[in-house]
Structure formats: structure tokens, C-alpha cells
Design a binder for these strands. Structure first.
Lengths: 213, 213
DNA sequence: TGTACAACCTACGGCGTCGTAGGTTACGGT
DNA sequence: ACCGTAACCTACGACGCCGTAGGTTGTACA
């Protein structure tokens, strides 16, 4: 996508500052990890796309794992930030709506990151036994849900189950939507909320969002 | 798990018939793919676990892709078979129930296959652009759902969206349940159905299954 | 103008894996 | 008892990738 700036007809050998190069490498790494996964990406390729040789990458990140770790960390950060920032509504349904919208916005604007996060696996990097990045997210949702359950007097021990269900729902739908890109984000969100909130037996035919866009 | 039969104290060099060896290699391959993924598994390892050398694997399957293809194909077959076989109920809710139960039964009894199917990716093997094995399954669900939508007079073009949502829901919940192994299959199924059918706003506190076990 | 450091390079060694060439051994049939 | 074939083996060559040792060049600043 973003080609290294060239001067005139010949490719200029530009020399960057440390920070610049670092950011550039992260961008490229994100793109490659999203497209080919962790194993399918080589350090050499990252370096090549940056117009630079391997040792530069090692200098900055110590290896492929280093690049991956930073990319993932940042991506999780922004994802959680966007969703958490959309959780200030009062009514649970409004929370659901804005959360769904926020997540789809993340999918749209950071699709590479989303691809990485959903692809996940990469064998045992998390603390517990259950690796998956998506499940890390689900366990965040779990807290929100547990609070809601408590307020309603439901069995809180079931929060994990419902959290996984909800996250799985929007995660796979997000992946699908990323490919087909239709209908619009708002419509998808409306239907996701429709299903999650009303269930199949009370589906509305023309679900609409009520919150701020 | 299943150790090649030994005679007495020394490991006997058993010579198998083609079919036997083939099946054994598939079993081992399934296990390894489930545990370490496609890229993380080497032909040598498959052969070693079978107490055999590499060329045997190449003789039978032509390479790693060959083994993977057969394993995946069979697994998809059984999965779809089990779910499709549970779809003979009349009332949509009963369909949902037995489908959920069937799927969880698959997760329980063929957990290795389930791990492979959910891990998926493995870059572009399917026909279309959207690779994911799980999405192949979702597109099957799509048909069932479309028929149901038509009967209810809903917009059929939305079937894909809801299919993805439902499949994503049970897929991620299945992964989670595979790790924690609690509560029981029936309870999980009951809650899945509870969410999918009633939605968050009409959740029942003590959901129960009504169909045959 | 020269010098010190940051940015960058070429080159190599090592490892794991794939896939194949060509030879060896068990075993059932006659 | 022998023989043909199916099952199996021991190499081997090639490739891609990781990670590092040690040298080179641009550039800011005195």
C-alpha cells in the first residue's frame, strides 16, 4: 500500500531515524502477519518490504517474536480501548449496541489487526492454558456481563459461557463481513444486537439502532 | 494414546497392510495437526510416531498436504453428518436444540477434529476467497436458516449474517468448553439455545432441553 | 573539518524440513 | 522351497529461514 517515498525516477536510499524505522517495520509486520500468519511471515520479508536488511529488524525487536509481540499488544490495546470506550451507556441494550458498533468500526478501520487477533493461536503465549487472543477479549467481556448478571440476579457463574457466546458471535460475523463488506456497518450491528438481545424467537424484521452513531 | 502393540518387552517391528498403515497415519496426523497446527507439524514427526520412516508417508499421501486434506475432509464429513442427522425435528426450536447438542457431542467425542476445524486458516484451500473451514460450515447452516426465514416471511438475504452469528457463537463456546469441561454438555447446550432463542432480554434462569437426549 | 555514534550493510553458519533415488526385507501364493 | 510384490528403509541434496559477527556509511555537532 504505502510505498517508500522515492525521489524522482531512482529509488533513493533514505536513512531513517530509529523511531521512524521502528514504526515502519511494525506497519509492515502487521500487514504481513495479517495476510500470511505468523509462521508464513519471514523476517527477511519484513526487512525487504522496508527496503532494509535483516539485522535492522533484529536490532529493533530482537527477532520475529519481538515484532509480533509488539504488533499484537498494540492491536489488543486499541481494540479493547475502542470497545471499552463505548461502554458508558446506562441501559444494557445501549451498551450492547455501542459495543457492537465499536467493534465493527475496529474491524473496518483496523482490519489487519482484526485478522491477526482472530487468527491467533501461535501456541502458548498467554498466561493461562487457553491461548487464543479472542478468548482474552472474551474474558474482558465476562466482567461486564457478570456485573449485569448480578444486577439482574442471574447466576454469575454462567457469565463466561455467555461471554464466549457473544464474542464468538460478533467475531465470526466480523470475519465474514470483512470479506463480503455488505451490508453496511450499521445494519450489521443492528442485526447482531437484534439476535443477541431478542433471540431467534423474537427477532425484529427491521431492527434499528437507537444510540449515537 | 494408542501405542503400537508390542510383543513382550521388545518393540516388535510390525509390518502392516497398506490400509492399516494409512489409517494409523491419519490418526496420528489428526492428533498432531490438532495439537500443533499444520505448520507446526512435520512429516518426519508423523512418520516417527507411527514407528516408520518418511517415505512411507509420501507413498500414501504424497506429502503433508495430502495427509491434511484427508484428515480435514473426513472430519468435516463427520461433523456435518452429525449435525445434519440431528435436524429432523419439526419445530425450529427443537432443531436448534438437537443441532446444538449434536455439535457439542462432536466437540466432546472428536475434540481433535474440532480443534483442527476451528484452527483452520492454512491459506486458501477452499473454492472461494473466504477460506475458513468454519465458514464452510456456516454456509451450510445458512441453507437451513434461509428456509426457516422464508417460512416466517423474513428477509432471506440476511440468512448469511445470522448463520455466521450462530455458528460463531457455538464455535467459540465449544472451544472454551473444550478447555474448561464444565458444565455438562446438556447444560451448555441449554444455555446456548437459551441465548440464541430468547436473546439477552428474555433469558430464562433455568433453561432446559425438551428434546430427546 | 574531523570525529563519534547511529543507521545500515554483506556474509556466513546452522538448523529443520521437504521430497526423492535407490536399495532392502518380510510375507503370501503356488 | 522359491519368487514376486508390497511394505519399508537409509541415505542424500536442496531449500528457506533464523540469528549473528564484523565491517561500512551517513550525519549531527563541536
Amino acid at each position: 500500500m504505502v510505498v517508500v517515498s522515492e525521489q524522482g525516477s531512482r529509488a533513493q536510499k533514505r536513512r531513517m531515524t530509529g523511531r521512524q524505522r521502528r514504526e515502519q517495520l511494525l506497519d509492515i509486520g502487521r500487514g504481513l502477519f495479517a495476510e500470511r500468519g505468523f509462521d508464513g511471515t519471514s523476517v527477511e520479508e519484513i526487512a525487504a518490504q522496508a527496503g532494509v536488511s535483516k539485522p535492522v529488524v533484529y536490532e529493533h525487536f530482537g527477532g520475529k517474536d519481538g515484532v509480533y509481540a509488539v504488533v499484537v499488544d498494540r492491536e489488543m490495546q486499541t481494540l479493547l480501548g475502542m470497545v471499552a470506550g463505548a461502554l458508558h451507556a446506562d441501559h444494557p441494550r445501549d451498551k450492547l449496541e455501542s459495543a457492537a458498533l465499536a467493534l465493527l468500526r475496529y474491524v473496518e478501520e483496523h482490519s489487519e489487526g482484526f485478522r491477526i487477533v482472530t487468527r491467533d493461536s501461535h501456541a502458548a503465549s498467554g498466561t493461562g492454558s487457553f491461548a487464543s487472543l479472542i478468548s482474552d477479549i472474551a474474558s474482558q467481556v465476562e466482567h461486564v456481563l457478570a456485573a449485569e448478571f448480578r444486577a439482574r440476579g442471574y447466576d454469575m457463574s454462567l457469565a463466561p459461557l455467555y461471554a464466549q457466546s457473544l464474542v464468538g458471535m460478533v467475531a465470526l460475523t466480523g470475519q465474514w463481513w470483512l470479506e463480503v463488506r455488505t451490508p453496511s456497518r450499521e445494519v450489521v450491528a443492528a442485526h447482531l444486537v437484534n439476535l443477541a438481545w431478542n433471540g431467534l424467537s423474537h427477532l425484529e424484521e427491521q431492527p434499528a439502532l437507537g444510540a449515537d452513531s
